[in-house]
Design a protein around this nucleic acid. Sequence first.
DNA 1: CATGGAGAGTAAACCGATTTATTTCTCGAT
DNA 2: ATCGAGAAATAAATCGGTTTACTCTCCATG
Lengths: 355, 355
Amino acid sequence: MPGEDKQRRATIHDVARAAGVSAATVSKVLRGVASVRSENAQRVREAVRELDYRMDPLAAGLRHEQRRIIGAVVPDLESPFFGALVTGLERAAEEAGYHMIVASSRESEERESDLVARMADWRVAGTILVPVRSERGEGATRMRELGMQAVLVDRASADDDFDTVTADNSEASAKVADLLIGQGHRHILLHGATRISKAVRTRLDGFTERAQTLDPQVRIDTLLSDDDPETQRGAVRTYFDGHTGAERPTAVFSLSQHSTLLVLSELRRRGLRIPQDVELVGFDDADWMQTTWPSITAVAQPVAAMAERAVSVLLERIEGGNKGAPTSHLEPCTMLVRESAGQMNDPSRQYERGG
Amino acid sequence: MPGEDKQRRATIHDVARAAGVSAATVSKVLRGVASVRSENAQRVREAVRELDYRMDPLAAGLRHEQRRIIGAVVPDLESPFFGALVTGLERAAEEAGYHMIVASSRESEERESDLVARMADWRVAGTILVPVRSERGEGATRMRELGMQAVLVDRASADDDFDTVTADNSEASAKVADLLIGQGHRHILLHGATRISKAVRTRLDGFTERAQTLDPQVRIDTLLSDDDPETQRGAVRTYFDGHTGAERPTAVFSLSQHSTLLVLSELRRRGLRIPQDVELVGFDDADWMQTTWPSITAVAQPVAAMAERAVSVLLERIEGGNKGAPTSHLEPCTMLVRESAGQMNDPSRQYERGG
DNA sequence: CATGGAGAGTAAACCGATTTATTTCTCGAT
DNA sequence: ATCGAGAAATAAATCGGTTTACTCTCCATG
């Protein structure tokens, strides 16, 4: 059974003794400081190999103000989007020689604030926060109070205190407006599964603004329900109950993956055909969307680019002496036009569906 | 800008000074040790509030052999299944007063071994490992060498060194066999998106054994492709190219979520109707499966139960003195019969489709 | 030849907690 | 008043590293 032959792990002092030098010298060798005779350095490296020595990363950072750790707080670990984001963050952080610790706020602002404080307890060098709400939420506020080094990702907009990295939600949503208005739609439903996320609000605004520029007459209904799944389902159902026949929108733009699934489910339940009766565009792509029938037109977020950017911006602050005003980065999205919307660009159909 | 008013955080000594007691006494109060005069305890608590003191959890554990941290290593953070698992693990660990650090091996055994060693560097109290391969993989081997305390989850079977917690893959797959054989299917394709995962192999064996018990004549094709997505897609395509007409299987059992998506995609591409031409059952449920059309019959894994069990088993080892032989826990799955298979239990159809 | 500066090495302090070993306090019994 | 036992408090050691401050050599320079 494991745990029985537990001879204590070798420490830096054991290595020092084995190599016949002091612990300070071993420390120098390990961190690549130059002023060590190559003969001694060699002996140290041998001792390390001999004893199977591995440094304790926590003890190593104890004397410093901050440790070589980057904290990450995301609202949710069950969604593939944040999963991919975290994977990217982890890779980038490790490449830079940092450890990464991840925690999920589970869409709770209170927990978010707790987790942020916990990151400070761990003396992380910096934190990457995907806020539950926005740069004005509890987590960001707490970080300001604690004077933490951080980057806000995804659900935030430009901020006076923190660098931000987001998908270009506004531009991508405007492109969706181009597509749908271009197809002749003049009555469109915007659906969001949460009203508090900054990203969702930006998508909504980006779409609305462009759509109204293209045609001031366009009718846009918005439905932002709260987080309880059943309430949301009910709200969608009620909406469609009240908008039948000529009142029914001819297209839906769902503002999150969750939202897309919800809308899809309700459209199916009512027997509405996609795209013939209603066209559907979703923000945030998922692997099933290209396989389901009809396949779903969606905006794909540049998750890898966001992760990489977030870490590089944070490292610049940490290692570059925290100088310069906070920056704000928008990473471009990609639109994947599939069967559920945008493929019938036959002009004749535009009149058919228009107004 | 944050980071400017960085007065150093209060330490336990600051609190001691403010309360007019020694650091040792503060430590006692903080950990709830009884032998402190209530008057002093009160003063300490006030000082803590006054100075906004928060303990450094890492320094706190420095003197102990192990720290109050549980490590988790999973093969993948982008899949909702492991995402949900990690969320559950995190919750359970925190409830027990442990911190949790998560890392993704990204389906690489080499990285898995590295991560396991890194967990040991962090002096975690215990580790929860979802192996890339199985209890014989590199991660588990490394843990044995290092004498670590650990629980193996999901892709493992009973082991001499470690407790294991898995879904009851065998029983659930047998139930799928009951369903498909009961529906009259006598030619079934089993598809897995990875051959090295222990869970996938167990599902395959569980199905095959039951199916052959029910009808020794049954024809079962198995297709376990390797991990490169394009290779897999090609393998499926080739299989169906070579099995048309009477040679085509009447049902497919896909052994993982990835696999389900892959098979679904290929069936659609060929214009095969589900379930009329081919029935489909997938192992591992996903939210889109009940919304897509046709909705997909799937085996839902008891992810919350697995997470909770894994942590409680690990804590029992850690805090219960590591006594008793390693245990092996099977959590029951649920079958969600939807449109893609199992709904046509009209006996007359059995003959139609049989043999 | 004295001086000084660079290079190499190390003892000891330090980081922020816990634990041990010891001292001090309290109070009742003799 | 004295003693002793147990409770409460604390100084100091400890964990495993890093950093500081100091020593010691060696060699070039005035």
